[in-house]
Computed example of a mutant assay.
Amino acid sequence: MAFSSTLSAWAISVLAFAVMVSVGIANAQLDANFYSTSCPNLLTTVQPVVQSAVNTEARMGASLLRMFFHDCFVNGCDGSVLLDDNSTFTGEKTAFPNNNSLRGFEVIDQIKTAVEQACPGVVSCADILAITARDSVVALGGPTWNVLLGRRDSSTASLSAANTNIPAPSSSLSDLIGNFSNQGLSTTDLVALSGAHTIGQARCTNFRAHIYNDNNIDATFAQSEQANCPSTSGSGDNNLSPLDLQTPTQFDNNYYNNVINMKGLLHSDQQLFSGGSTNALVSTYNSNPTQFSTDFVNGMINMGNIQPLTGSNGGIRTNCRIAT
Score class of each variant (00 low, 15 high):
residue 271 Q to L: 06
residue 172 S to I: 02
residue 178 G to D: 14
residue 251 F to Y: 15
residue 203 R to W: 03
residue 24 G to C: 14
residue 241 S to M: 10
residue 197 H to L: 02
residue 18 A to Q: 10
residue 301 I to D: 05
residue 26 A to T: 09
residue 215 N to A: 06
residue 220 T to C: 08
residue 188 T to E: 13
residue 181 S to E: 14
residue 171 S to G: 07
residue 66 R to L: 04
residue 76 G to W: 01
residue 67 M to N: 02
residue 80 S to R: 01
residue 189 D to E: 08
residue 67 M to D: 00
residue 47 Q to H: 03
residue 4 S to F: 11
residue 90 T to V: 09
residue 70 H to E: 03
residue 260 I to P: 03
residue 130 A to Q: 02
residue 231 S to Y: 03
residue 148 L to I: 10
residue 307 Q to F: 13
residue 324 T to G: 13
residue 285 Y to Q: 02
residue 27 N to C: 11
residue 119 C to A: 09
residue 235 S to E: 15
residue 242 P to I: 09
residue 186 S to N: 07
residue 153 D to Q: 04
residue 241 S to I: 12
residue 178 G to I: 02
residue 45 T to P: 12
residue 180 F to W: 07
residue 214 D to N: 13
residue 5 S to W: 06
residue 121 G to A: 08
residue 197 H to Q: 10
residue 256 Y to D: 00
residue 289 P to W: 12
residue 127 D to H: 03
residue 65 L to A: 11
residue 146 N to H: 07
residue 274 S to G: 14
residue 9 A to E: 10
residue 301 I to Y: 04
residue 23 V to P: 11
residue 85 D to Y: 08
residue 217 I to M: 04
residue 28 A to C: 08
residue 109 D to K: 14
residue 73 F to R: 05
residue 52 S to P: 11
residue 262 M to E: 13
residue 271 Q to G: 11
residue 291 Q to C: 00
residue 222 A to F: 02
residue 227 A to P: 00
residue 35 Y to P: 02
residue 34 F to T: 04
residue 72 C to F: 01
residue 64 L to I: 12
residue 237 D to A: 10
residue 229 C to E: 05
residue 42 L to E: 09
residue 140 L to K: 03
residue 282 V to I: 11
residue 116 E to Y: 10
residue 67 M to Y: 05
residue 185 L to H: 07
residue 219 A to T: 15
residue 259 V to N: 08
residue 255 Y to S: 01
residue 5 S to A: 09
residue 315 G to W: 00
residue 284 T to M: 00
residue 158 S to C: 11
residue 124 S to D: 09
residue 232 T to L: 13
residue 65 L to P: 01
residue 253 N to S: 14
residue 96 F to R: 13
residue 195 G to M: 07
residue 2 A to Q: 13
residue 155 S to D: 10
residue 160 S to K: 11
residue 123 V to M: 06
residue 128 I to H: 02
residue 245 L to G: 01
residue 271 Q to T: 11
residue 18 A to V: 15
residue 100 N to E: 14
residue 94 T to R: 09
residue 308 P to G: 05
residue 45 T to A: 05
residue 237 D to F: 07
residue 200 G to M: 06
residue 249 T to L: 05
residue 175 D to W: 03
residue 92 E to L: 09
residue 283 S to D: 11
residue 164 T to A: 12
residue 211 I to F: 06
residue 52 S to G: 13
residue 277 S to F: 12
residue 272 L to D: 04
residue 162 A to V: 14
residue 123 V to Q: 04
residue 65 L to M: 09
residue 202 A to Q: 06
residue 246 Q to L: 15
residue 291 Q to G: 03
residue 81 V to G: 00
residue 179 N to E: 12
residue 250 Q to Y: 14
residue 190 L to Y: 03
residue 68 F to H: 12
